[in-house]
Amino acid sequence: MFERFTKEARAAVTAAQEIARDASTRTIDTRHLLIALARDGGPARDVLVEAGTDVAALVAAATADLRSGGIDADALAGIGIDLEAVRREAERTFGPDALDRAARRRGGHIPFTSDARKSLELALREAIRLKHRTIDGRHLLLGILRADSPGRELLVRQGADVEALRAVAERPAAA
């Protein structure tokens, strides 16, 4: 499959791995791919901008989301757990920033989630459907949009219009 990826699409997959390492996440999902596509120039970024997405805000929100490791203090408060209290107790026993340190991977391979793998497969399918010979950032973006994925959720939370994005991404390339 990867042999049909453009250089830029391959770079996005590699960047997603680096983003995961930087944010100390255990897996790579469609949010990582989305950050890579939105951050680095290319067809996907162009589509996002054209569909009216604030790319900088999207990258900032997505990065913050990754760094939290999925721990949502508000959601925990809703079931009676005070995250700050847990954090304090953990630091008392295990030292400063214990909870953040515990999230850090011991290095090595960070696996793609099935969600992310599915989005890459969908990107291939989108390229076939659109009769495109190569898979570029736009197809990866379509893959993220089609799957019921964390990346799509994030876009929706950021106020993106998924249908508009899809329409722009599916339009034949101008060049």
């Binding site: 490791g69 999925g70 721990i71 949502d72 203090a73 959601a75 925990l76 079931i79 757990i81 995250l83 847990v86 953990a90 909870l99 515990a102 999230a103």
Partner: peptide, 10 residues
């Protein structure tokens, strides 16, 4: 999900 991640870190 937050609880799981928290439990995992602990």
């Amino acid at each position: 999900r937050s609880l799981r991640e928290l439990a995992d870190r602990l």
